[in-house]
Each structure stands twice: as structure tokens, then as C-alpha cells.
């Protein structure tokens, strides 16, 4: 059951290329690649000057996205860039259909509909970018909840069969530390919200939903089933307490 999250972690860590990283950890191109890119750009500008003018103007949203995107892997930029490029392609095809000249390119740029088209597609890119993470977060919450429930059931079954002695080698102190960290993070997240802060709704909703267990089975005495501090325990209705160390 840990697969989606693991995959996600791998995704976060993976994807390294041969380029270096700057001080902020962001990917940077190597000197050879930079030179190659510059070379291609010069050739393209030389060969398709009118198209490049159009493209340069139409891809402004992507440039803005690049400047505002603080993520190490520039997902926002990529998302906006792809859609922005699709929008620009429509206008460029229109340019190529008209014979292709600098005048035609300027005429096209003078048409507001073309701007709407190019920027609109960039906007769709932004919409995609802002819509997917909450959906993923919701999926992760559901998945983690299921995992915890399964783990709690396994732990409950072991405790039923072997008693509390079965906990003797379990790293419960580390679990406590993690739970305290979660509680602390939630306290920090709630504080600005209470004072009109900007905590995202999605985070709060995530944490409240993540550890629910079936009402019929009391799993709250298991390490996996006990409510995390600062959260509303779904099964037990407890809230905001530091979990006692089991065993």
C-alpha cells in the first residue's frame, strides 16, 4: 500500500539529468548544452525570424511562469510552457499559411484574438497546474489512511495473539517523535489561519481525513491506529493530545 507515496518520493528525488545544480538546488545546463541551445536558437532565428518573433511574443506567459516558479523542477513552467506552445503553434500555422513574412507576423500580433489564443492556452496550463496537486493530495490521504488502517489491523491482531510484549522491539519512540513533529507542524499551520493567515485548506483537510478507522473496531490503542496529536481522532473522537508511548 505504500507504493503510491514511495513512487511519489522517488519522483521527487529522481529525474536527475547530467546538468549541474545551482545554489538553490535548481537544475542548470552544462556549458556544452548551453552552447548547443544558443547555436540552435541562432539558426532558428536566422531561418525563421518571423515565426520566432511571434513565438517570443506569444511565450511571454511561459517566461513569467519561469520567473515566478520557485520549484526546483519548474513544473509550473513546464505545464504552462506546453500549453502556451500549443496556443502559439495555432498562430504560427496561421503565419505559415499566409506565406510567412515579418509583416504578416506583425499583423497577427496586432490581432487581439491571437493574443487571447496564446495567453488563453497558457492560462489553461495554469489551471492544470493548480488543479492537479489537490487531487493528488486527496488521493495520497486516502491511500495513507488505508495503509494505516491495514497496519493498525495487523498490529491489533499481533497484540491480540501475543499481548503487549510483542511491542518490545518496536521503534515506538521514533514514532512518537514523528507524531510530535506532525502535531507541531499542524500547530504552526493553524496559528496563521486563526489570525487570518494563509494556511491552505487542502492541508487541513488532508490531515483531518487521513487516519480514520472503522467505527466498529477500536484500533486506537495500536501505534498505527492511534490518533495523531493535534488531529481529531476519527474512531475515538480524541483531539489535540500527545499520544502516550505504547507498551
Amino acid at each position: 500500500m505504500a507504493k503510491p507515496a514511495t513512487k511519489a518520493r522517488k519522483g521527487a528525488k529522481g529525474g536527475r539529468n547530467k546538468g549541474g545544480r545551482n545554489k538553490e538546488g535548481q537544475k542548470t545546463l552544462g556549458a556544452g548544452k548551453r552552447f548547443l541551445a544558443l547555436f540552435i536558437a541562432i539558426i532558428l532565428v536566422t531561418l525563421f525570424f518571423d515565426s520566432m518573433i511571434l513565438l517570443a511574443a506569444g511565450m511571454i506567459p511561459t517566461g513569467v511562469a519561469y520567473l515566478t516558479d520557485r520549484g526546483p523542477r519548474k513544473h509550473a513552467t513546464r505545464t504552462v510552457a506546453w500549453m502556451n506552445l500549443a496556443g502559439c503553434l495555432i498562430v504560427i500555422l496561421d503565419l505559415w499559411g499566409g506565406g510567412g513574412s515579418l509583416d504578416h507576423a506583425i499583423r497577427l500580433l496586432m490581432d487581439p484574438l491571437n493574443w487571447v489564443l496564446m495567453f488563453g492556452f497558457a492560462g489553461i496550463g495554469w489551471v492544470i497546474y493548480f488543479t492537479l496537486p489537490p487531487i493528488v493530495s486527496g488521493y495520497l490521504a486516502l491511500s495513507q489512511e488505508m495503509q494505516l488502517k491495514d497496519l493498525a489491523k495487523r498490529q491489533k491482531a499481533l497484540e491480540k495473539e501475543w499481548g503487549s510484549d510483542v511491542r518490545k522491539n518496536a521503534p515506538l519512540d521514533r514514532l512518537d517523535m514523528i507524531e510530535e513533529e506532525i502535531a507541531e507542524a499542524e500547530r504552526r499551520a493553524k496559528a496563521p489561519k486563526a489570525s487570518g493567515g494563509e494556511a491552505t485548506d487542502s492541508e487541513t483537510a488532508d490531515s483531518e481525513e487521513s487516519m480514520g478507522v472503522e467505527a466498529g473496531e477500536d484500533l486506537t490503542d495500536t501505534p498505527a491506529g492511534r490518533p495523531v496529536a493535534g488531529r481529531h481522532g476519527v474512531a475515538s473522537g480524541q483531539s489535540g493530545r500527545t499520544p502516550a508511548k505504547a507498551g
Binding site: L132, P133, V136, S137, L140, I178, A185, S210, V228
Partner: peptide, 16 residues
Amino acid sequence: VKRDIKNRSQLAHEVG
């Protein structure tokens, strides 16, 4: 899993 819960927001943004 609980560590993942703690980092869920980051994960969601990364994967999203």
C-alpha cells in the same frame, strides 16, 4: 506512512 503524512503537501505538489 506518518512521515509521508507529514510531507504530504510537498509530495502532492511534486507529484501534482
